[in-house]
Design a protein around this nucleic acid. Structure first.
Lengths: 221, 221
DNA sequence: TAATATGGATAGTGTCACTGTCCAACTATG
DNA sequence: CATAGTTGGACAGTGACACTATCCATATTA
């Protein structure tokens, strides 16, 4: 199919598709002539994936590219994908310092002692370079700067719940055999589910709060 | 203190403080003269809160304002705060439709049948207007549009974990008595913890993946 | 062959979160 | 009191981001 059909079938404007092509999020079509290219179902699918990541999940185009790249490159190694595909946080840009791309190694463990302690306590085996560590230490530090006494031990119950969540995630993944599809599913379950998971927590919080305080008028305007 | 000291003590540039004042995130100081105002510790604290929300959590300035406003207005009703303070998603702007401020009511439940079913199945009592419902339905719809067979029932295990998480959250909250402080803590635990919780899941996922697949070389470059 | 579509390049748009500059009014110091 | 420095407020400018629009030399289709 040509670009217009891709646009029509995906609902993504023509110009935007070109933009994604430029940015490398969408692989170029097979060129049939100097000014003509042919796209197929994989392009359509990729496009939907891009919109899911940038739309529902709210990733920036650059972050989506990283995830997509990791997905296609490491399609044989789901486990590594899960580790690598992260390194991305909400499209905030705040608190950069994200130029530690290489050679950080040990330093990161040192730099994130709380995450390290937590990982240790849980008996987890995760890369010292997993950026999630940094998120944890940064959050804890921020919390404490606001006088909330919170340390990695306070996160232990959450870690156990996360462990169960992860087990559930991986169970879901194991039903898929095709490596490419598996990698895609991993991305979907890891990233797309995040807002929904947080939404569940908010729902549960409201419910719990209602249950503890006055249990009526909770639906009032 | 004057603006410079506020800037020095918070690490937020002078110009940025002025910007927050303009945007209404930071309440104005007590004017001592036509071109002079006095700020106090509450301003400093608020500033730190703003940076925590926009920095670690990645909220947009506008979203942070909503949260902060809800926090100060509903400081008497923590339970309602938890329901209201959301309505904000990552600063993506994608898929808006967020102009349902009033009179949506029933329509939202209708519009989000999966969230409704889930809430029902869990026996939860939450407002029909809680925007988290929309996030859930939207995520599920997106997932299915990508051929991942996923419905609210698949979310049930997560909902149960969320319930436990929420219980844990509320427990932590109950130790605080001062209503203002409680509202602040609620915001902190609800919002600031989110990235950390997601980080935990990623860590747990990597660990679980390592455990299931080859258990070595997980730290390799 | 003429009208239309396409791919690629480049420029422009609107939003966001600041950042810089001005200036009149203050304050601190000599 | 003079004068240098600081402030609050207004407003313009900046750079990043995610598009969106315009061109134009082909290609395709009628």
């Amino acid at each position: 199919m040509r670009i217009s059909e891709l646009s029509r079938r995906s609902g993504v404007p023509n110009a935007t598709i070109k933009y994604y092509l430029r940015e490398g999020l969408l692989p170029p079509g097979r060129a049939t002539a100097a000014t003509q290219a042919e796209y197929d179902e994989t392009h359509l699918r990729r496009l939907r994936l891009i919109r899911a990541l940038t739309g529902v999940r709210g990733l920036s185009v650059a972050s989506a590219k990283q995830v997509l790249d990791a997905m296609t490159e490491h399609r044989t190694d789901t486990h590594e994908l899960l580790g690598i595909a992260f390194g991305i946080r909400p499209p905030d840009g705040g608190t950069p310092g994200e130029d530690e791309g290489e050679g950080a190694g040990e330093a990161l463990t040192e730099a994130n002692p709380e995450a390290a302690a937590l990982v240790d306590a849980m008996g987890w085996s995760v890369s010292a370079r997993n950026p999630a560590r940094q998120v944890i230490d940064e959050t804890l530090r921020t919390l404490r700067s606001l006088d909330v006494e919170y340390d990695w031990e306070a996160l232990l119950p959450y870690a156990e719940l996360a462990e169960r969540t992860a087990r559930h995630d991986l169970d879901k993944l194991e039903t898929v055999t095709d490596p490419l599809e598996k990698a895609e599913r991993a991305v979907l379950l890891t990233f797309l589910l995040e807002p929904a998971l947080m939404a569940l927590r908010r729902l549960a919080q409201e419910n719990e709060s209602t249950a503890r305080h006055g249990g009526d008028e909770h639906t009032s305007a």
